[in-house]
């Protein structure tokens, strides 16, 4: 009896909250007023800053009381934050894990306290019974979206592609390369003629693109550039311009991430498409928690975020302003 009570604690609390809120006639979105703890890695990149901003925004819109903990890139801080969330008796925990290993113990503690944990953006090496679900992007899919866009864009014409890879051996580099190759696999008119690492940086992207241009007849033989991230594409665009060619028309540019600066290039007609690695990982997580609170629906163990394709048709300047405001 007691155990059943405990099991339903979470549900009852939220139901009680819902009843209370309904009685004072608040908008329906605020029905599931909850306290949710969010352990963020830190502020390692603009993308992560945007993820934090969006999580706070989403929480505010849904009337969730978000308890935010910045771990400053340390797992020990994250474990501490999780224990403190458990002690406070929050309704759920969002965790963006800084590393993959070493989480079993604290996840067990959360499970014992009946607090669902949702992983954001990265996964962990722990039994999947210890967390509710993981919300991440599919890196292979991102590459495939980029490849399929390019195949549709050139529409049957022959197209020689140069590829700027991420850091050699890193999982985004491997997956985004495979995905792109899958995306163009059915189109024999598309071929990757050169592929080299640009270490995900603008400087290396520019330097490597300079060498591609030299090696391929001053760039006249290159029809498109595929970069594993936008920063390398931004560097490469400069190299293409300095070589006297027009990026965006002489050489098509497609990349991944959708950071603000690529939208500036897109607005100037110098980049063609980017695939978004969405910083809104919390939105799907909150949806899941709402559904769970409502009728106990358990989500699948992996929720894939949308890999949206942006092109010049999507009003790049507006997207740029929006992205900038997120703290990128």
């Amino acid at each position: 009896m007691i155990s059943i009570l405990e099991e339903n604690m979470f549900l009852k609390l939220t139901l009680a909250g819902a009843a209370l809120l309904a009685s004072v006639a608040l908008p329906a979105t605020a029905v599931n007023a909850q306290t949710i703890g969010f352990s963020q890695i830190g502020s390692e990149s603009g993308w992560r800053a945007a993820e934090t901003t969006l999580t706070r925004q989403q929480a505010k819109d849904r009337g969730i009381d978000l308890k935010f903990a910045d771990a400053q890139q340390k797992q020990e801080n994250q474990i501490k934050a999780l224990r403190s969330f458990i002690a406070q008796g929050v309704d759920a925990i969002l965790l963006a894990p800084v590393v993959a290993t070493g989480w079993d113990q604290v996840l067990e503690e959360a499970k014992e306290a009946e607090i669902p944990v949702i992983l954001l953006d990265r996964t962990v090496d722990a039994p999947d019974s210890l967390y509710m679900t993981a919300v991440t992007s599919d890196l292979v899919h991102e590459g495939r979206v980029a490849g399929e866009w390019l195949a549709a864009e050139v529409a049957g014409k022959d197209c020689k592609i140069v590829e700027l890879q991420g850091t050699t051996g890193s999982s985004p580099a491997i997956d985004r390369k495979n995905g792109f190759e899958q995306g163009i696999a059915d189109h024999s008119n598309l071929s990757i003629i050169r592929s080299q690492t640009g270490d995900f940086t603008r400087t290396k992207g520019k330097e490597v693109m300079e060498s591609f241009l030299k090696a391929e007849n001053g760039g006249k033989d290159i029809c498109a550039l595929y970069a594993h991230n936008d920063d390398m594409a931004v560097g490469a665009i400069q190299a293409i311009k300095e070589a006297g060619l027009k990026p965006g028309s002489d050489i098509l540019v497609v990349s991944i991430d959708a950071v603000p600066d690529i939208f500036l290039a897109m607005a100037a007609g110098e980049a063609n498409a980017t695939v978004e690695l969405t910083p809104n990982m919390a939105g799907p997580a909150f949806d899941v928690l709402e559904a769970f609170a409502k009728d106990g629906t358990l989500p699948p163990k992996w929720i894939q975020t949308e890999s949206r394709l942006y092109t010049a048709a999507d009003d790049p300047m507006a997207v740029y302003e929006l992205k900038k405001s997120l703290g990128y």
């Binding site: 051996g169 592929s195 080299q196």
Partner: peptide, 14 residues
């Protein structure tokens, strides 16, 4: 560095 980039070898060999 430049020679390696121009050579077209896979980046694993850089």
């Amino acid at each position: 560095n430049t020679g390696i980039l121009l050579s077209g070898f896979p980046p694993e060999f850089n």
